[in-house]
Amino acid sequence: MSQHILIVDDEKNIAISVDYLLRREGYEVSVAHDGEEGLRRIRDDRPDLVLLDIMMPKLNGFQVCEAVRQDPELAGVRIVMLTAKGRDAEKEKGLALGADAYITKPFATRELVSQVKALLQPTT
């Protein structure tokens, strides 16, 4: 069974590109366009990994990340912050809230893929 990745990003074109990229690598991919939808989908679908944008309408990425990490049932979900906010402080905050990795936009596609692979590899 292939692993499930959820993309949460309000930028349609970025979602399209990442979706295409990860499907090609053989993952099952779904997309949410704002924080609220993202959190709902995480709870319903239990994805193995979430690519989470920060600047989004309704709920921002930090809030989503925090909510996920507070829910013990979602403990297995890996979170990769994917954002144009490149400041160190933002990165620190993301990691402190329990994100597994932090990737700054614009990213190299190969790096994204290898990061995702690395995070999903050791799973049982």
């Binding site: 930028e11 074109n13 970025i14 399209i16 590109s17 990442v18 295409y20 990229l21 090609r24 600047m55 144009a84 906010k85 490149g86 400041r87 936009k105 614009p106 990213f107 190299a108 596609t109 190969r110």
Partner: peptide, 25 residues
């Protein structure tokens, strides 16, 4: 400046991602 940077990076992200994909594959 932070907002401008964010706004610039967003389209750049799409451009770079699609360009790399086209180039690689």
């Amino acid at each position: 400046m932070s907002s401008v940077t964010h706004e610039l990076r967003t389209p750049l992200t799409s451009i770079r991602a699609f360009s790399e994909m086209l180039l690689d594959d």
